[in-house]
């Protein structure tokens, strides 16, 4: 029998604020009942677009922040406007009701390691910043953290960087136009750094566009570094029922299987993924 997870929540929350942090990028804060189970970094939620008859499917978003207060819990989502649904979301104002389903999926595995590299492509920072926040909260001082953050330009990069929790981690920026940091793909800097890092003591957590994840996949296979990625695929249910969100994964015997991003993921060992597209 497959594992049952009874700690799921599906109920209304209320928007506390929904503010722009950079062009096209928003921080959404939702007040939800305390019954909402504490999410693990890497887990996600489905947000229903309220009062909308055309866009029927909820949208998946990584948990970016979560705090329990006296009478409520606060869930934070960091999102980029990339289509009609996220456009609609960006117009919602404080007080609006919004249904949240979550927390869903499997989060990042927290392996002990001397060095953790967080590799974020743009909005992919959302779950990684939450991961780092939890590590800082738990008082993990024995690990050195570095954040490799790639973005389109300086304005977006700075907006995103403002969401990184305060700590003594290193930030390594790259932009497409070179307006701040390295000019080019973030994986270029990572590649250089990996040359002189002891790979056994290093692990990578990554989230970002497919192109970034693909080059990362090549990089870590050459270097034999343990690397986990958070993937995106279109979703209908978010709970494993529709089989709509599958990715192709490699089996040990060389054959491949489809796995559900919403259930077996969204976080996968990067070596498992068959990158076809």
């Amino acid at each position: 029998m497959t594992e049952r997870t009874d700690n799921l929540f599906s109920d209304a929350g209320f928007i506390r604020h929904n503010r722009q942090i950079a062009p096209g990028h928003f921080l959404l804060s939702i007040s939800i009942p305390l019954a909402f189970p504490v999410p693990k970094p890497g887990q996600f939620c489905m947000l229903h677009l309220p009062g909308n008859e055309a866009m029927i499917l909820s949208r998946p978003f990584s948990v970016h922040g979560f705090q329990k207060k006296k009478k409520e819990a606060v869930l934070e989502i960091l999102y980029r406007v990339s289509g009609r649904g996220t456009q609609f979301l960006s117009n919602l104002t404080p007080g609006a009701e919004i249904r949240v389903l979550g927390p869903l999926g499997r989060g990042f595995w927290r392996l002990a390691g001397k060095r953790i590299l967080l590799v974020a492509g743009g909005i992919g920072l959302a779950p990684l910043a939450f991961f780092l926040e939890r590590e800082i909260e738990y008082g993990n001082h024995s690990t050195a953290f570095s954040i490799y953050l790639g973005a389109k330009n300086a304005e977006i990069l700075e907006g995103l960087a403002s969401r990184i929790p305060a700590g003594n981690q290193k930030l390594l920026p790259a932009t497409d136009d070179g307006s701040i940091g390295y000019r080019g793909p973030i994986t270029d800097i990572l590649k250089k750094d990996l040359e002189h890092l002891a790979t056994k003591e290093t692990m990578i957590l990554a989230c970002g566009p497919t192109a970034m994840l693909k080059s990362l996949a090549e990089l870590v296979t050459q270097k034999a570094v343990f690397c986990e990625v958070s993937l995106e695929e279109r979703m209908a249910c978010g709970i494993g029922a529709c089989l709509g969100c599958v990715v192709e994964t490699r089996n040990q015997n060389g054959s491949s299987t489809y796995k559900r991003v919403c259930k077996e993921g969204p976080v996968f060992d990067i070596r498992e993924i068959v990158w076809s597209r």
């Binding site: 008859e53 055309a54 029927i56 279109r234 709509g244 969100c245 192709e248």
Partner: peptide
């Protein structure tokens, strides 16, 4: 995949 896509009031 991709196996699904939302369409107006449906999928």
């Amino acid at each position: 995949p991709p196996r699904i896509i939302e369409t107006p009031s449906g999928m």
